[in-house]
Every structure is written in C-alpha cells, then in structure tokens.
Design a protein around this nucleic acid. Structure first.
Length: 736
DNA sequence: ACTAGTCCTG
DNA sequence: CAGGACTAGT
C-alpha cells in the first residue's frame, strides 16, 4: 500500500481520535468542571480551606460574629473536604464511608489514595468510562448519575483496573501478548501505558498480535481476573450496605440542619437571605413529621460519635419543637448553639452547604419558572409563574423531587451552580425522566410565546433550538452541555447576565412578572457573586474554564458588554430587545421592496426594537438569507429555462402565476396575506434574466460570477412604504 | 479591528 | 433560519 494511503489513513485516524478525545474531553472536562465547581463551592463554604484559596464565604452575609461561629464549625469539616475534593463524586457520603471502612478494617488501603489529584480524577473517570461503561457514559459521567455507591465502586474498580493494567504491561514486557478483551481498546491502552509508544503503525501491528495470543496467557490472566472479581464483588457488597447506612444518616442530618437552620436564620433574614423563608416553611412542615418518627430506628446504625451528635440534635430538636413553633426566639439555641455545637459542626456544615445549595437551586429554579411562565400564554398551566414549593427539597424521601429541581437548574446552571447536592449521593438515579422535566422549562421559555403576539424574548431562537433541545439536549445526562446558556442568548441580555434579561419587553403586559424577575435577579446576583466569584455577569467564565464551548456564540450574540449597558436603561421601556416572528414576517415583506437594506434603514423600520449589535446583525443576516434564497431560486429557474430550451430573455417573464413567483411568495409571504408589489415582479424578472444571460454566457464558471448580478440587483431596491415603519404595520398591512 | 456580506452547513 | 468560516471593504 502506498505510503500516501497510509498517511491519509493515519490522518483520518488522528482526526477521529481527536474527535474522540474531544468527546471525552467534553466528558472529562465536564467532570473536571464539576470538580472545580464543587471545589469552589466547598471553598466557599470553607474560607479557611487548606487547599482552596478562594476567599469567598457564603456566611459573609451573616454578621461577623455569626460568621465566625460558622467558620469555626465549618472548619471542622475541612478535613473531610481535603481528601475528597478532587474526585467529583467523592463526597460526604464517600467520606463517611471511608470512615466506616477504616472502622471496619478497610480492605482497600489504596482506596484512600485514589483520586487525590484532580488530574487523577479525570484519568480515573476516563478509565472507568473506557473500560466499564463505554456505551453508557451517563454512568460514569454524571456525578449524581449513579448513587455515590457506584462512584465509590468505580473508584475501587479503577484501582483494580490499574493494577490489572500494570500486570498486563509486565506481561507485555515479558514478550507476552494481551488478552483479546483488552485489545478492544488497544490503542487507548497503549496510549495510556506507553505514551511515547511507537508509531501508529506499530500499534496497529501490536493490535494484530493481540488478536492471537497464546491461550495459556489468556487462562492465567483470566484466572487472575476472576479472582479479583470475586474480591471486588465482596467488597462491593459491603460498600453498598455501608452506603445505604450512610444515606440514611445523611437524611437525618439534613433534617437536623433544617431545624438548626431555621432557628439560626431568623438573623440572616436581615440581609435578605434569598428565598429561604419561603422554602423553609414548607420544608418545616414536611420535616416535622418525618423527624419525629424517623430517627429512632437508625440510631443504632450510627457511629458512636455520630450517635452522640445525633442524640444531642434530637434533644435540641425536641426542645425546639416545644419551645418555638416556627422561628420565634429560640435564642438559646442560637446563642450558644454554634459554639457549643462543636461536635455537630460537621453536620451543620454539611447541612448548611446543602441548604445553601438548595436555596440557590431554588432561586435559579424560580428564575427559570418565571421565564417559562411569563411568555407562556399558551402553556401557563404547566408552570405557574412562581410555584417553587413543590420542587422544594423534601428532606425525607422526597429527594427525588429535589433532585429533579436541581437538575433542572443545571440545565442552564451547570456553569453557574455547583451542585454539591449530587455529592450527597442521592439514592435515586437521575433517570432520563428527571431530565426531561427540565426540557419544558428551557423549551417553553423559548417556544412559548412568539407565535401569538411576538413577545420580546428573543423569539428568533425558538424554532431552532426547540427541537434539538427537546429531543436530545437534556434528555440524558450524557449531554451535560457545559454551556446550555446560549439557548437563552437573548433573554439573557440583561445587564446582570442573569436569566432575567428578557423581561423588559414583556413587563409592559405583566408587571408582576417583572417584579418577580427583578427579585430573582437580585437573588441570583447574590448567588452568583458568591459562587461565580467575580464574574456574576459572565456566564462565559465558567464554561470557558471547562471548555471553550460556545464561547464564540456567546461572545458574538450577547456577550457584548457595550450592548448590555445599552440595554439596561431601556429595560422596562417599550423597546423590544429581541426580534419576534412578527419582525421576521415584516422583514420578509420588506424584502419585496428592498433586497439590500442598510442597517440604518433597518433601524428606522424596526423602531420598536432596541437595536444592538446582535439585533442589527441578525436583521442583516435575515436579509442575507432572504437574498440567498432569492438568488438560488433565480438561478434554479434560469437554468431550468435554459434546459427547457429557452434561448432569449424575452421569453422569460415573471407573472403572479408562474412557478418562480409562487416559490418566492411562499417563502416571503407564506400566508399570502400581503399583496406583492408589482415592482418586485419586475425586479425578479430582471434578476432572472441576469442569471439567464450569465449562464448562457458561461460566466458561471467563475466562482464569483454571481457578484456581478448582485451588483445589478442591489440597485433595484425601491422605497419601503412608510407604513412599514409603524410597529403595528403588520396588523395594518394585513388587515387592509 | 470591525462590519457587511457570502457561502456552506445543519 | 442560524452558525460559522471566510472575504472584502473601511
């Protein structure tokens, strides 16, 4: 085979591999991102964290004294974080598990070391994915995909896998071959094992060798494997059990926290502590019942230390139940509570984190709902404007709901909201149904309105993104696009960069939603200022770290800060910030008059639109698309005429019943409710003849032969009737 | 550097 | 119809 071919093959392979890598990187970086996000979150929670230097503190908003107290408490949790941060899935649960394991005489000493470096975590993930569940990435991807248990398992499996690998490498070195099963991913393995390994060709040969390896090797290897497998199975069983226990405990901790938190936060309220208030009340109710009957049985499963903690908490709990119905007073708890709660600090920290996260989720959720509800005249029933409650995290047994809500957030919150909650290893696997729930939100937001009256919320995006989104987008955790935000590109145009942008246009009709949005915006701002650090306004930030995904889109579409600043003063005015389908329709009708409108002209004719670069370029793009279609039709029909034997342009004319006209009319005036001006027919005819002549003259061999025609046509623009300047021109035009 | 425009793709 | 790559003009 010629070298050329093999080279081509190589490059192709390389290409493909790059693609693969790309995918995996998406995956890997996604997990890395989660890790990072989580790290950020935790560091947020642990201002004194030994590893993270982010000096953010959620407790910032509490008064100094209190924050100190909290810090003290949280500090105690640091020791936990250190080891587990790196691994995305490693969390409190796994941490607890570790403890348990040690207590029970952990069988896997190396477990602790696994994933101690962030890179390590990635490698592990990758390994896992590549080996165990290549075809079902969700399992290894989603941090909350499988219960933590599986993460845990995988951790161990990983280790096993590495060892197996090592063994294999040794075998190779001894001049032995691999087992066929390994050869499945021969290239990958080789890459991992011997990065500097020879040429691809070599590896190809290697692969071939692998195919026919001695049976002896196979047998011994398989023996080894099976032995390990049994071991692992055994461990796995144990771990599963432990995990379940821990989950129970966790749930209890959560309850405790809500109690504590409830008493504590009456202070926090002063600085507008998110929407916890609203949520709290609901939780409390549910919690009250749960917490009573619940903990007894599980007490016996706790560690001694935890038992004590639990006991104390229980006592407090009861006191609280008696002393204060909701939140009144109960100062004693608060006064000495945090300080004397040392042993419980850990729990408090955990639960605090959770609560905060929940709150955040809530906020975002709210925003989403507002979004979806506002434009949804057509689907108001699905998501009433502000019904956070039911999505609220129910402490006991209702994790599912919470999870769902949370995931919904992540649909566009991946970048924004690290979700430590996954780390709690919710028992339920986020099924695809979970995620599909998120769909309506995004989709609705996009699709909901427009058709009716063309609400301002970036209608242009809707038709497009809707289907792809709903069909693939968020249905599986596989597609945890680090940056779904572009979907809401325009709606996000608010100066805050929060998903509140689009209200301005709409609020005329629904001031309440405006308020709502503003409220959530402010909340959201708070959150983001905490969790996004200094980039509350740049959704771009996070994804960029994860992967440069969609960056250009954001940048080009709405990342323009100048535009943002332009917008803000107008928000609330009558100016629309997006182009609606009606605008599109109008543009199409205008095309009958002008094929090459200047941007200034567009501005005058779309006076109801708040122009910025995005809008302008979009409008221009529209007309560009119109032209494209127009010219394509012209060329098509010109060639057709030529094929039909037409020899003279004289034979070419465009009437209202010719095919070409119908095609054009169908495109620009689909409803046929607008009377196409005569002039357009003339222009079309001229265009057709231009094409005809050019083709006849053989000019079409020149790649840019059309440009000459364009030049001619662009001079044929006529005045657009004044009526088009009216924002209501459509009604006026079409009702005539 | 920025924009308008084209071409291609999905 | 939108995105993105690319070009040409300023």
């Amino acid at each position: 085979m010629p070298d050329h071919d093999s080279t081509a093959l190589l490059s192709r392979q390389t290409k493909r591999r790059r693609v693969d890598i790309g995918v995996k990187r998406t995956v890997g970086t996604a997990s890395a991102f989660f890790a990072k996000a989580r790290a950020t979150f935790f560091s947020t929670m642990n201002p004194q964290g030994s590893e993270q230097d982010v000096e953010y503190s959620v407790v910032q908003h509490a008064d100094g004294e209190k924050s100190n107290v909290l810090r003290k408490l949280l500090k105690r949790a640091n020791s936990y974080e250190d080891a587990m941060m790196p691994f995305p899935g490693a969390t409190i649960i796994s941490q607890l598990l570790k403890n348990n394991m040690n207590k029970n005489g952990g069988t896997e000493p190396s477990f602790q070391a696994s994933g101690l470096s962030s890179t390590g975590s990635e490698v592990h993930q990758e390994d896992i994915c590549s080996n165990s569940s290549r075809d079902s990435p969700p399992e290894c991807l989603s941090p909350f995909g499988r219960p933590t248990m599986s993460q845990f398992d995988m951790d161990r499996l990983c280790d096993e896998h590495l060892r197996a690998k090592r063994a294999r490498v040794e075998n190779i070195i001894r001049g032995m071959s691999h087992s066929p099963s390994v050869a499945l991913r021969g290239n990958e393995n080789e890459r991992e094992m011997a990065p500097q390994s020879v040429s691809p060709r070599e590896s190809y040969r290697e692969n071939k060798r692998k195919q026919k390896l001695p049976q002896q090797q196979q047998q011994s290897f398989q023996q080894l494997v099976s032995a390990r497998k049994e071991q692992k199975r055994e461990e796995r069983r144990q771990l599963k059990q432990q995990l379940e226990d821990m989950q129970k405990q966790l749930r209890q901790l959560q309850e405790k926290f809500y109690q504590i938190y409830d008493s504590t936060d009456s202070e926090n309220d002063e600085d507008g502590n998110l929407s916890e208030d609203s949520m709290r009340s609901e939780i409390l109710d549910a919690r009250a019942q749960d917490s009573v009957g619940r903990s007894d049985n599980e007490m016996c499963e706790l560690d001694p230390g935890q038992f004590i903690d639990r006991a104390r908490a229980l006592i407090r709990e009861q006191e609280m139940a008696e002393n204060k119905p909701k939140r009144e007073g109960n100062n004693k708890e608060r006064d000495h509570g945090p300080n004397s709660l040392q042993p419980e600090g850990k729990h408090l920290a955990e639960t605090l984190k959770q609560e905060l996260n929940t709150a955040m989720s809530q906020v975002v959720d709210t925003v989403v709902k507002v979004f979806s509800a506002k434009p949804s005249r057509q689907l108001p029933q699905v998501f009433p404007p502000l019904q956070i409650p039911q999505a609220r995290f129910a402490v006991n047994g209702e994790n599912h709901n919470f999870h769902t809500a949370n995931q919904r957030l992540q649909c566009f919150g991946d970048v924004i909201i690290p979700n430590p909650l996954d780390t709690f290893g919710n028992v339920q696997m986020p099924s695809s149904t979970d995620q599909t729930e998120a769909l309506p939100l995004v989709v609705r937001k996009n699709s909901s309105d427009q058709s009716a009256s063309g609400p301002p919320t970036g209608g242009h995006h809707q038709p497009l993104h809707q289907s792809p989104l709903s069909t693939t987008g968020f249905t599986t955790s596989t597609f945890r696009h680090p940056f779904p935000l572009p979907l809401m590109a325009y709606p996000f145009q608010s100066p805050l960069g929060a998903p509140s942008g689009s209200f301005s246009g709409k609020d005329r009709t629904s001031p309440e939603s405006l308020d709502l949005t503003r409220e959530t915006t402010s909340l959201r701002t708070k959150m983001s200022s905490h969790h996004l650090g200094h980039h509350p306004c740049s959704p771009v930030h996070a994804p960029s770290t994860a992967e440069g995904l969609s960056l250009s889109l954001i940048k080009s579409e709405c990342g323009d800060l100048q535009d943002m600043s332009e917008i803000s003063p107008y928000s609330g005015s009558a100016m629309q910030e997006g182009l609606s389908p009606n605008h599109l329709k109008k543009a199409k009708l205008m095309f009958f008059y002008t094929r090459y409108p200047s941007s200034n002209m567009l501005k005058t004719y779309f006076s109801d639109v708040k122009f910025n670069r995005c809008i302008t370029s979009q409008l221009i793009k529209w007309f560009s698309n119109f032209r494209e279609f127009y010219y394509i039709q012209m060329e098509k029909y010109a060639r057709q005429a030529i094929n039909d034997g037409v020899t003279s342009t004289e034979e070419l004319s465009i009437t209202r019943d010719c095919e070409l006209y119908r095609a054009l009319n169908m495109h620009y005036n689909k409803a046929n409710d607008f009377e196409v001006p005569e002039r357009f027919l003339e222009v079309a005819q001229i265009t057709l003849r231009e094409f005809f002549n050019a083709i006849i003259a053989g000019k079409d061999v020149d790649p840019s032969w059309k440009k000459a025609i364009y030049k001619v046509i662009c001079k044929l623009d006529s005045e657009v009737p004044e009526i088009f300047k009216s924002p209501n021109c459509l009604q006026e035009l079409l009702h005539e």
